[in-house]
Amino acid sequence: MQTEIEHTAENSVIFLENIQKIYKMGQEFVYALRGVTVGVQRNEYVAIMGPSGSGKSTLMNIIGCLDTPTTGNYFFNKVNVAGLDDNDLAEIRNREIGFVFQTFNLLPRSDALHNVELPLIYAGVGKDERRERALEALDHVGLADRASHKPNELSGGQRQRVAVARALVTRPSIILADEPTGNLDSKTGEDIMRLFNELREQGNTLLVVTHEEDVARHAERIVRIKDGLVERDEMIPASERIVPGSHT
């Protein structure tokens, strides 16, 4: 089943238009992305799926403004960011994107509160407001009582919740999760997916990159990537979606 709406730069939070990414390895050119066109609307919950080597990591780096495409246009809130420099991209990552990584990527020597505050520091938010908003975000993911714990004092699931709180704290346009359950056992992974469902219901836009069908099935829409191209872009009917149980 194809998407009903026609995605354009005008109606999408992010809109990628014929994105190519070409790496030069020695004498050879490697085509990681061969012309991807995809859009995500506000308050959508989208999964990007693909086997390893499909180009989905490259796509996620470009969507996350961590990398730039070789050719093509990338509109973020209608602004073409394809040609921006490092510092401008840093600002977009800071304000518009919340990252959740497979390996959590928390600062190991800082406590949960400081980890959540980090994006706000770079956004230039004052100390008191920073602290207040970080505590709020931690409370949102149910970790208000773990604010002063360091990552090695937290369980895997708790670490990922801290990471989600860090992603939420700047109230970004999009939350970008890369294999968010990859390092968690299935029960804890399920907890995180339930949290994502809640975030979606609260009006957030979510983009989850994964190679697991079970994870992707939580989303409303799955974009399948293969050999650097969009293979299929389908809406998931409510009846086929996995809805995590409401209790742990």
């Binding site: 510092n87 840093a90 800071n94 304000r95 990252f99 990527n105 956004a123 860090r166 700047t170």
Partner: peptide, 16 residues
């Protein structure tokens, strides 16, 4: 290196 990557991902500019 990884810490620097994290800081950059959440929006640290070069100067910072």
């Amino acid at each position: 290196t990884r810490e620097i990557g994290i800081r950059k991902a959440v929006g640290a500019r070069r100067r910072m």
